[in-house]
């Protein structure tokens, strides 16, 4: 696990898109994500969720303000360094899984390490271990189209964790899953969170967000409020049914 207090920090971040009239996707957002925390981001469409994700995921740079990931300020980095930071400090889990269709489960999990120059044998070993941890030890050589949605998302989660990142970013991770599978995946998130992984989940579903320690509500590019949840991820399964 990485040392240090803060996994990700946003300091007065603005992101302005210029499509004719300037649009402030994020307008002065400051947020600290401590290491080992579990944060959910909620908000309606256009509230700036995706922009926040892209910034934290080192896919984009802020127009103003600072985004610090794994101790480094993203805006000051060149493209190559930013890519490197993304590869080592951020793990992505997407709604649509986004696995490489022609790579099998082990190869998909090992992919981020391939780009870090890790040797083949070492990659496979690490990938196997992670697949075992997400419960797919018997699916190693399967291609994504031979796996169910839940299994694919497990592979994606294993892939997100393979470089031991500062933060795992999940964008609507259960959006394409049925209720039972969703619960399984979220349980897995809890499990890794308990193991010390920092989680940041973007969702518009209350019961998904409630797995977190706190919920950050975004509205019109600003943080509307931060809702601290006591018990956080320890909320039991029935708790997902009740709202608020």
């Amino acid at each position: 696990m990485k040392t240090g207090e803060t996994a990700v920090e946003l300091i007065d971040v603005r992101k302005t898109y210029r499509v004719g009239e300037p649009v402030h996707a994020l307008d002065g957002v400051s947020l600290e994500v401590p290491r080992g925390s579990y944060t959910a981001i909620m908000g309606p469409s256009g509230s700036g969720k995706s922009t926040l994700m892209n910034l934290v995921g080192c896919l984009d740079t802020p127009t103003e303000g600072e985004v610090v990931v794994g101790g480094r300020e993203v805006g000051s980095l060149g493209d190559r360094e930013r890519t490197r930071l993304r590869g080592t400090e951020v793990g992505f889990v997407f709604q649509t899984f986004n696995l490489m269709p022609r790579l099998n489960a082990v190869e998909n999990v090992a992919l981020p390490q391939l780009f870090q120059g890790v040797g083949r044998a070492e990659r496979r070993e690490r990938a196997r271990k992670l697949l075992e941890r997400v419960g797919l030890a018997d699916r190693e050589e399967h291609l994504p189209n031979e796996l169910s949605g839940g299994q694919r998302q497990r592979v994606a989660l294993a892939r997100a964790l393979v470089n031991d990142p500062a933060i795992v970013l999940a964008d609507e991770p259960s959006g394409n899953l049925d209720t039972d599978t969703e619960a399984e995946i979220l349980d897995l998130f809890d499990e890794f969170h308990e193991g010390g992984t920092t989680m940041l989940v973007v969702t518009h579903e209350r019961h998904v967000a409630e797995r977190a320690d706190r919920i950050v509500h975004l509205l019109d590019g600003k943080i509307e409020r931060i809702e601290e949840l006591d018990g956080g991820s320890t909320t039991d399964e029935s708790g997902t049914e009740a709202s608020t």
Partner: peptide
């Protein structure tokens, strides 16, 4: 395109 996006998201450099 999507695969390229995935590869870049997981740390592929332009040269990769």
């Amino acid at each position: 395109t999507r695969e390229i996006g995935i590869m870049k998201a997981v740390g592929a450099q332009n040269r990769d």
